[in-house]
Design a protein around this nucleic acid. Sequence first.
RNA 1: GCUGGUGUGGUGGAAUAGGCAGACACAAGGGACUUAAAAUCCCUCGGACUAAUAAUCCGUACCGGUUCAAGUCCGGUCACCAGCACCA
Length: 804
Amino acid sequence: MRYDHKKVEAKWQKIWEDKGVFHASEDTAKEKFYALIEFPYPSGQGLHVGHPRPYTALDTVARKRRLQGYNVLYPIGWDAFGLPTENYAIKNHIHPEIVTKQNIERFKKQIQSLGISFDWSREINTTDPDYYKWTQWIFLQLFKKGLAYKKEMNVNWCTSCKCVLANEEVVNGVCERCGSEVIHKVKSQWMLKITAYADRLINDLDLVNYPPRVKAQQKNWIGRSTGAEVDFTATTGDKLTVYTTRCDTLFGATYMVISPEHPLIEKWSDKLENIEEVRAYQIEASKKSDFERTEVAKDKTGIRLNGVEAINPVNNTKIPIFVSDYVLVSYGTGAIMAVPAHDTRDWEFAKKFNLPIIEVVKGGKDAQKEAFTDCASGILTNSGFLNGLSVEDAKAKMIEWLTEQGIGRAKVNYKLRDWVFSRQRYWGEPIPIVHCEKCGFVPIPESELPLKLPMVDSYEPTDTGESPLAKMTDWINTTCPCCGGKALRETDTMPQWAGSSWYFLRYMDPHNNEALASKEALEYWSPVDWYNGGMEHTTLHLLYSRFWHKFLYDLGVVPTPEPYAKRTSHGMILGENGEKMSKSRGNVVNPDDIVEEYGADTMRLYEMFIGDFEKAAPWSPSSIRGCRRFVERFWNLQNILVDGEKIRPELEGAFNKAIKKVGDDIENIKFNTAIAALMALINDVTAFGSINKKELGIFAILLNPFAPHITEEIFEICSLGDGIVAEQKWPEYDESKCVDETTEIAVQVNGKIKAKINVAVDAQQDEVFKLAKSDDNVAKAIDGMNIVKEIYVKGRIVNIVVKP
RNA sequence: GCUGGUGUGGUGGAAUAGGCAGACACAAGGGACUUAAAAUCCCUCGGACUAAUAAUCCGUACCGGUUCAAGUCCGGUCACCAGCACCA
């Protein structure tokens, strides 16, 4: 009686679809559970076996929640704007809309073959005008609140994609997508002021349940530091302001460094004796990309400004000013005070240029030999009115003094920069703004949304870096909504991150024409209860979408300050050789082949059994057979089925423990050990020789979230009751039955195991020791020795410590 | 370089709050069934010493420490993975 997975899986998938059993209901009386996976980008390659890992994991949770009586929302959609589609379209002269449609069809078919319980009635697509209408609407609100603005700036320019990239999209100096060189270019760009939310994006991490490493990464990315600004005065009389986190070390500042782009250089050009040399250095620095400039912590370069010096305000000492590219114009004030005794970079620079090094915090080694940076617990020295204070107190005192003198102030700085939001591409949401000579940038009226992408013949980006839309003169030329005069449409489009920054809201009410979702739906479904995704999205998508959500919260559109109550992340599935799966490495496994050969249930079980969910794991074609064997063994339980309406006493322990273990493990994303527990249970049952209807019913329900098809089939053919999805409840366990009456414990003498004895769980300590000592081996080991100590850890271990 | 993580049999991985290391699988070897193969079922499976599934010893990357007891805690070293890249 071999199990025919093809027949059974097709049968149940049809039943589920016909009955719409996975559609979330709007019954707000029921408790809701909203599970979310990162919606896929429908690429031309189709699915590989890595995709279903998170889908299956949250499907397991979603199915369990339904059995527990929740109203579950588990939706899916398509993050379909993006470069690969556009590039494919250019190459093959097919409209990206058509390519997208084909890719989605393929993805959908593949995902459906896995029996994931998505609510397909809520499927969304970011490239659908009914969807991006609201992406554009959110942009307009950002614009109206001054959070979207246009700025001339140095941008990262991918030489191959001919497109501006966000800092976050540049990896090691090359384009994250295509790996081509990235250079700098000045362009006018739309920016989103994410920095306005920096503090809240850090602080509100306290409200959510994210893994610690995700929180840490977001905090580091935002990079808040608390310090002070100090105004130095140059010998020219100009004010030169620096940012420092260590204002306590001001007495140790022996020189200053400004970035090559600092505006004072131009101002001082006629006073600088070596202006030619400085100019040459500026040119050198501008030629380098950020990558080259920061590539290695290599030799510090720099030029001393001759003719201008600065005055250290605490002791009125004249100190030299250098220009060096290790100081970044984009962070702080673009100028630093250098304290070589307590900063490694300053120390290296001082050594190279032979500058004085003054120790101002005691406790380190020789400041002339190495910088003493880890000095939080040190005591100030050589520092006038700060002498004898701790670093902490000295900071406070210095800020107080600077403020009094009017030459400094406390200041918070962030590494986070504003989000470059424009893309010079076709396949993205048009930015709903026009430019009028008279009125400037004017938003188009909300009634005109969606502003649809026009049909064009060619999607080739222009060599000048304008969007392909720039060639559409009919579309560009329009009238100003403000004055009625001539105006031009914005030709840039939005980045792919736009549509994915709010998609989880649309699922709550996907067909609404009046709002991005109704108030009622937002009230009921917010927040997402459990969001699973990849670690690679921690600093991009996760941060961007939290930012948008907070903005919508401020507008009163959404009811919660945070979008996701809980976040987990999955490890990648690697190729058989332990390398990342990719076409070029030739190690891609297509889930279609696995489903065909072993069935969706086996595929799902293996995806969850493959290893720790949070860690990467290599695909193993032979290990999957173990999961198929387990499926077959479960199927064959019907051969040893007997009648019975209660769990039999002999199996009570095994079943109660399994119910507890499987339930707990699913909640703790330990799917691999949940399945191991079910395998152990089948071993117990098989060894026992029979299973009754009640027991098989419980087994099937426990296994159902992992293997939904075969469990329904067993339920039906063995007449165990109405269908699992239709009628059954997640089983309860009896805590008292999870503990065995007697357990085997190990007996150690001086920490070495000498014997194993069976004792009652509630046995008295004295009894246990007596029993332990009656064992031959133990007796031999303690014979003639003095017992120093006896330890009994209930139900676990006995240790007898002896000395001669 | 900094930050975070990881390191356990031939392989993937278990091990709750410091308490029997190797659960559950895969692969391998042996056996049963079979004309044969597949499938299935049973047995063995970290290493050393062994006739032995008797006893003993070693063993969770490496070195040291705390403890009656360490894969787990502490200090140091090494390797790998991820993120960040001079952030003042």
